[in-house]
């Protein structure tokens, strides 16, 4: 039974103004039921105001094998970071 339901990845937005954040995955027969299951599994403690569900199969992910060519080259490019700006203390989530 379980194996016949596809896997869905769940993204929840905690508050207006924040991003949707990946919170986990679940099984559901279709997208509408996935949304409802996500509501029950991931927002029952007041965690969210908006949910996205995406079929796990539809996500193309980078492979651990590609880690070095993908991510290492940016490691020594300090000039890409906005470290030369001062950030106001009252700007959260930056």
């Amino acid at each position: 039974m379980s194996t016949s339901w596809p896997l869905w990845e769940v993204f929840v937005r905690g508050k207006r103004g924040l991003n949707h954040v990946h919170v986990g995955s679940l099984h559901a027969p279709d997208a509408e039921m996935a949304l409802r299951n996500a509501r029950d599994v991931y927002t029952r403690r007041n965690e969210g105001v908006s949910i996205w569900v995406v079929k796990a199969d539809d996500i193309t992910a980078s492979s651990p094998d590609e880690k070095d060519p993908f991510f290492s080259p940016s490691g020594d490019k300090v000039y890409r970071h906005p470290t030369f700006y001062s950030i106001p203390e009252d700007v959260p989530h930056l």
């Binding site: 905690g14 508050k15 103004g17 403690r45 965690e47 009252d90 700007v91 959260p92």
Partner: peptide
């Protein structure tokens, strides 16, 4: 808390991490 902050209205009155739930009544 700053009274003239454009972000405040987006965040409500406190900004503890959402995963622990807020605003129970």
């Amino acid at each position: 808390m700053s009274f003239d902050n454009a972000y405040e209205s987006l965040l409500g009155h406190e900004d503890s991490h959402w995963a622990f739930g807020t605003g129970f009544s």
